[in-house]
């Protein structure tokens, strides 16, 4: 079977390469079609110092069909679903070629983290955030990396996560509505739905819209 031989060769190739920036492991020793890839966040990006895990499913027709990849680690990125971890990358879809290896696909994912494509997004909300306020996006992405992709692989629990930082929402804006008696989770949900991350002090129109949604 070409698939088994090819995957074996790729595993051996990564195992033998000391300079490899990526790692590849079998999830279950009985199954050669389920693998777990991992790589470090590219330096000079909000994903720096993070270790990202990728679920890989190798189809029967591999290498003639692309492997199915999705992030196991939560990533705040325009081309990665923040909920499911689904990836929007051409080489994993229509631009796949049998010459591409699992190793080169993982390196491409690493490159994708370095240079996002907001015009072809997987997560529209994150893409909007990226386009509108890059600085805020970077801090949110860095917070997600610190929370979900720490190098020591020990992530803090969901309860201790700051919701405002998690979704890149301005803390003062959130506190403004929480002080009025609304639940923090509800305010975050409304602000996310409306796509508002921050607001001017004299922007009454947006404030009214938020209140309207909160009271609904």
């Amino acid at each position: 079977m070409s698939r088994a031989k090819r995957v074996m060769k790729e595993l051996q190739g990564i195992k033998d390469d000391p300079e490899a920036k990526v790692d590849l492991q079998l999830v279950n020793e009985n199954d050669i079609h389920l693998l777990k890839g991992s790589f470090l966040g590219p330096p000079g990006t909000p994903y720096e110092n993070g270790k990202f895990l990728v679920d890989i499913e190798v189809p029967m027709e591999y290498p003639f069909k692309p492997p199915k990849m999705k992030f196991d680690t939560k990533v705040y990125h325009p081309n990665v679903s923040s909920v499911t971890g689904a990836i929007c990358l051409d080489i994993l879809k229509n631009a796949w070629s049998p010459v591409i290896t699992l190793k080169s696909a993982l390196i491409s994912l690493q490159a994708l983290l370095q240079s996002p494509e907001p015009n072809d997004p997987q997560d529209a909300e994150v893409a909007q955030h990226f386009i509108r306020n890059r600085e805020s996006f970077n801090s949110t992405a860095a917070f997600w990396t610190k929370t979900y992709a720490p190098m020591d692989s020990v992530s803090s629990g969901e309860t201790s996560i700051d919701q405002a930082a998690l979704y890149g929402i301005d803390r003062t804006l959130l506190d403004q509505f929480v002080s009025q008696g609304f639940a923090e989770a509800k305010v975050v949900e409304v602000l996310r739905r409306l796509g508002i991350k921050s607001m001017d002090a004299n922007d009454n129109e947006s404030a009214n819209k938020i209140l309207e949604e909160l009271l609904r």
Partner: peptide
């Protein structure tokens, strides 16, 4: 099996 695979390296 992985060990028996030949590699240019």
């Amino acid at each position: 099996q992985i060990g028996s695979v030949t590699d240019p390296r």
